[in-house]
């Protein structure tokens, strides 16, 4: 009896020693990641490509070659692609230029109440997109007593049916996204500005440089890595957009004025239960994101070592 307990104790000790050796410990620590990587990323990634060549019905999966991809390039897809691209370009432009300007203002020694301004700008990013949608639907309601139409009325412009025009639909989505993410991007640029040595501005002033020359020759070059970073995440977020459209029209907007690529994926893959086709749309989105990010990084010279 005592002999067996001794050997089991010995075994336990050996196991403890094994688990505690510096060779094994790191693998114990990273094992949850490896497991989740295999099951929740690698498997679905491969599966996404496989599914895109299949027709998937309950209990019956058939290989259909390129037929899903042949079906993709239809007018609805092009409408979704167009909406998504316009949305992406507008959000990237607004969410880079305006935050830079605001960050410069916030960084200025002439500014009072810096913390209050910074927090006020940041608070919208705490809002869930659904809550934001509830508010925006009421602010941009059809009634001419709603705030947006009241403002237009003040300038003598007729009330707009915000959710039913192509241009105003885009305006709603871009405004909602800009409102939510402005403050976060301001913080990125603010951090960048604080890295610029103040002596540079002082010596530029001695040389007689004006505000715009200082901005162009000192501020912008220093902010370049952050501009690249922010525009990269905005491009990717732009192509992934779904919720900003969902909160205004769920999944069907009049004339597809709010349809996005991911919205099309959801519509086909989940609502129509055409998983193979949905997976093919996903693969196309992935390729688009990859190509556009690559072009953007090449154009901005992010791959040149000296810039980073």
């Amino acid at each position: 009896m005592s002999a067996t307990s001794a050997t089991s104790k010995n075994k336990q000790n050996k196991l403890m020693k094994f688990l505690n050796s510096k060779k094994v410990v790191p693998y114990v620590f990273v094992s949850p990641f490896i497991l989740s990587f295999l099951v929740l990323t690698l498997y679905p990634t491969i599966q996404a490509f496989i599914m895109s060549f299949q027709r998937i019905l309950p209990g019956q999966v058939t290989f259909v070659g390129m037929s899903n991809y042949d079906r993709i390039f239809n007018p609805t897809f092009y409408k979704a692609l167009q909406n998504t691209t316009v949305y992406m370009i507008l959000t990237v432009f607004i969410l880079v230029t305006v935050p830079i300007l605001l960050a410069i203002f916030l960084d200025s020694k002439l500014t009072k109440f810096k913390t209050i301004f910074r927090s006020a700008l940041f608070i919208p990013s705490l809002t869930s997109v659904i809550v934001a949608g509830v508010i925006f639907r009421l602010v941009f309601a059809e009634s001419d007593t709603a705030v947006a139409n009241q403002v237009l009325g003040f300038f003598g412009v007729d009330a707009v049916n915000w959710r039913y025009n192509s241009w105003s639909a885009m305006f709603l989505m871009v405004t909602l996204a800009s409102w939510r993410w402005m403050g976060v991007n301001v913080l990125y640029f603010l951090a960048g500005l604080q890295n610029i040595p103040k002596e540079l501005y002082e010596s530029a002033e001695i040389d007689g440089a004006n505000v715009f020359q200082k901005f162009k020759n000192i501020t912008l070059p220093f902010l370049k890595p952050i501009i690249i970073f922010v525009s990269t995440i905005s491009i990717i977020a732009g192509f992934r957009m779904f919720e900003e459209s969902y909160v205004f029209w769920e999944t069907s907007s009049p004339g597809n004025i709010g349809l996005t690529l991911v919205g099309y994926l959801y519509q086909q893959g989940i609502q129509q239960n055409d998983m193979g086709f949905g997976a093919a749309i996903g693969v196309v989105i992935l390729i688009i994101i990859f190509v556009v990010s690559l072009i953007q990084l090449l154009l901005t010279g992010a791959f040149k070592r000296s810039d980073m």
């Binding site: 679905p44 990634t45 996404a48 991911v262």
Partner: peptide
């Protein structure tokens, strides 16, 4: 492993969504 971490950050979740849903 660190490369995989960066890889997952880059892969848009929307691509994995349908296979994960099926899983």
């Amino acid at each position: 492993i660190f490369l995989f971490v960066l890889f997952i950050i880059m892969v848009p979740f929307e691509i994995l969504m349908l296979p994960l849903y099926q899983l």
